[in-house]
Design a protein around this nucleic acid. Structure first.
Length: 177
DNA sequence: GCCAACGTTGGC
DNA sequence: GCCAACGTTGGC
């Protein structure tokens, strides 16, 4: 009997600087989805390029925020493809090493599912039972794309009280935004 | 603004 | 391959 080739990682956490692109910006985009451009770290790239698959679950984290916090849930909506912002000399994430014919940097698309009614600050997460080994809570953790254990993901979603973000035109009705 | 904890670069 | 210098991330 063939053994099912089960991937070890299907849950992720993506950091975004809330002042640059927040979960609320994501909620206002067409189809509530976006390309996750600008990742310029090899380990983060490898996770996106080699391991992420369409449908994988994503926690959205606001870094450099007040307070820094996990703020909602999205999912991967497109498999990794070259990050074109690396080709554009005028783009802040321009990288001359990356060529169109052999791209260095990749990105996935993600689509927003829900925003937490209780955003979960980094500080508060440090006290949650079951998250002791979470990468985000590791001292000096800087990875902007990081794997999350399914159990960790479930704990966080339960605490966050996610409110589904439905259609673009209904955004005005989301009083918590 | 400070600074710890990285990651990258480049001389050797 | 080693490692010092430098640049970046991101909490505080």
């Amino acid at each position: 009997m063939p053994i099912k080739n089960k991937r070890s990682i299907t849950h992720w956490l993506l950091k975004t600087e809330s002042g640059v692109f927040s979960i609320f910006d994501l909620a206002r985009t067409v189809d509530r989805s976006t390309c996750w451009d600008g990742v310029r770290n090899y380990q983060a790239r490898n996770f996106m390029r080699d391991q992420m698959r369409v449908g994988d679950s994503v926690l959205v984290y606001h870094s450099n925020a007040d307070p820094s916090a996990v703020v909602g849930v999205a999912h991967v909506s497109a498999l990794a493809y070259p990050d074109h912002t690396a080709f554009d000399p005028k783009d802040p994430h321009y990288d001359p090493k990356s060529k169109v014919e052999s791209p260095t940097w990749f990105m996935v698309d993600i689509q927003l599912d829900s925003i937490f009614q209780e955003s979960l600050s980094l500080k508060s997460l440090r006290n949650v039972f079951g998250l002791e080994s979470m990468e985000l809570l590791r001292k000096g953790s800087r990875l902007s794309v990081q794997p999350v254990q399914k159990a960790e993901f479930q704990i966080i979603v339960k605490l966050g009280k996610p409110k589904k973000v439905v259609a673009e035109e209904k955004l005005d009705e989301c009083s918590f935004i």
